[in-house]
């Protein structure tokens, strides 16, 4: 009976606030748009006393107007590129943490994680101030006599990637540190005893063994980056219509709820394989 008392509250919460919302989302993705509040109408209409299917219009729109699907392509590219850049930067960082003395590791990890806790929006705001035409970076470049006119840095693809990497880098470091710390140091020593140079030992022993950690780090950046809204909105070029932004605009500007819901369902479906892969890597 005590078990039921522990299980019941989280069960109810999860059913009401995780399972039910997804069910409603799928239902609305199939509904027809409407003029009322909320702006939807039933997918089943009545004509001459007979039910007629009039829903699913959003999916036709998605299939016919290619630019929504184009947003998925752009998001995929931006998310993979961000995750790859994070990984390139995170790997040496994780190596540095894993090879530090054990009593220093916690402090170093804290230094990696703390920026994540300093407020996401102020950090993105800092990039705006740094990259603006009259901003800090252009000021420094002009002061050094490197540029005549300010470089257009903000609202570019580069600023978007910079913001993404800065925001998500800590996520890529953590699983790599975990993988590297778990590794038996005897393996690398054995390679060295057998005559491998430090770099060869790293390349042939440490790197392959850390690949699952690297994959987890990649996915931990890629998955949230696919639906990211705020960074593209604040740092990216106006034409960078990524999925998150398209969904946001369809919902808030165009008030097309079925289309926004259909985009969310599609995003969910697209993300199921990477999510499953991540969970399998974590369960190892």
């Amino acid at each position: 009976m005590r078990r039921a008392a522990v299980l019941l509250p989280p069960w109810l919460w999860l059913l009401f606030l995780v399972a039910a919302p997804v069910a409603v989302l799928v239902a609305i993705a199939l509904a027809a748009p409407g003029d009322g509040v909320p702006p939807i109408s039933s997918p089943i209409g009545w004509e001459n006393g007979r039910p007629v299917w009039q829903g699913g219009e959003a999916w036709t729109v998605l299939a016919e107007e290619g630019w929504h699907l184009g947003a998925f392509g752009r998001s995929f590219r931006t998310a993979s590129l961000s995750a790859l850049l994070c990984l390139l930067l995170a790997y040496p960082m994780a190596l540095g943490v894993a090879r530090a003395r054990p009593e220093r590791r916690t402090g170093l990890l804290l230094l990696v994680m703390l920026p994540f806790w300093t407020g996401f929006l102020p950090r993105v705001g800092a990039w705006i101030g740094l990259l603006r035409d009259g901003g800090w970076v252009n000021g420094v470049l002009a002061g050094l006599g490197l540029v005549e006119a300010p470089l257009p840095l903000l609202y570019t693809e580069g600023a978007l990637l910079l913001g993404m990497v800065h925001a998500y880098l800590p996520f890529a470091v953590l699983p790599l540190v975990a993988a590297l710390v778990r590794m038996d140091p005897g393996l690398e020593e054995a390679a060295a005893d057998l005559g491998a140079s430090p770099f060869t030992a790293f390349r042939t022993v440490v790197l392959p063994l850390s690949l699952p950690g690297a994959a987890a780090g990649f996915l931990l950046v890629f998955i949230p980056a696919m639906g990211e809204v705020v960074i593209p909105e604040l740092l990216g070029p106006p034409e960078a219509r990524l999925v998150g932004r398209v969904l946001w605009d369809e919902f808030f500007r165009n008030r097309d709820w079925p289309l926004a819901a259909a985009l969310a369902v599609l995003l969910l479906l697209v993300l199921i394989p990477p999510i499953r892969l991540f969970q399998r890597l974590e369960a190892r």
Partner: peptide
């Protein structure tokens, strides 16, 4: 023995960027 340790510099660089 000596181990491949690009990590120290990489860590400094990454923390600097963050």
């Amino acid at each position: 023995r000596r181990r491949f340790s690009a990590g120290r510099w990489g860590l400094a660089l990454g923390l600097g960027f963050l």
